[in-house]
Amino acid sequence: MRKIATLALGFFCTTAAADEIWISNEKDDTVSVIDIETLEVIKTYDTGERPRGITFSKDYSVLYICASDSDAVQVMDPETGKILHDLPSGEDPEQFVLHPNDRHLYIANEDDAITTVVDTQSRQVIAQIDVGIEPEGMAVSPDGKIAITTSETTNMAHWIDTESQELFANTLVDSRPRHAEFVKDGTELWVSSEIGGTITVFDVETQTEKAKISFEVEGVHPDRVQPVGFELSDGDKTAFVALGPSNHVAAVDAETYEVEDYILVGRRVWHMDFNSDKSLLFTTNGVSGDVTVIDVAAREPIKTIKVGRFPWGAAFRPTD
């Protein structure tokens, strides 16, 4: 037994470590680390309570974790899995986004209708901004000038001026907005609405709606087609949209806003991330407790990887 273990260890030492996808498991209080080479879970680390949003610092030296029920953002050393320290986060941090300055975390405090801005270096809260009820989706423009919070019950995207840390616009979207992303060099803002079943596309310059994307999965009632997380591939040409309990990911032409494909994944698909060349997409499937690996070019699922209970967030980490 011991001999085999030693051999295995030797094997891994001689191979360059593969890139990884990190997954937060909301109901297990852990993160799972998937080796992108072998598509297997290679490590599981304990976190605070109810980990949801996860993101790496720009140099991937630390992992930030929204430990929602611990009311903290935890900072983990991805080499060892040790929690280095906690950041103040406001109550119930659900999702966050790291400013391009690699310093300021914009955190949605779901139970408090607040967006908290934390300086990761001084470990101080530098601003708290009143937003709508149940803030969740978070995004920052590539130039760092605008931060977005979407609020689930107020049904709005709140536009924050990162200079003054104040709201400068509030725009309505369909019911239960969940996720926001700046697209096409920050000229467009996309917001998914879970209950509304749409993605609203805003022109960033004018903060006005320029398009709305709808979804229709064959054999699934429209009520169950609930867009949540999404990511864009290859020069923002294609958007991949998790459609929650419809158990499908949609591939959307980001130019025409037409849906091109629906890809079957695990149950209640939630968030996702790509590998380094965006040839593989990893989706978290909350109800089935696994991660689906999608071949992006073929638009087909190629593997299912069991992780912890209620996988929520996904974050890519290169190891070279």
């Binding site: 709508g132 019950t153 107020t154 049904n155 709005m156 509030n170």
Partner: peptide
Amino acid sequence: DNLTTAKFL
């Protein structure tokens, strides 16, 4: 809940 939305509108 309504008031939170209302304050932005």
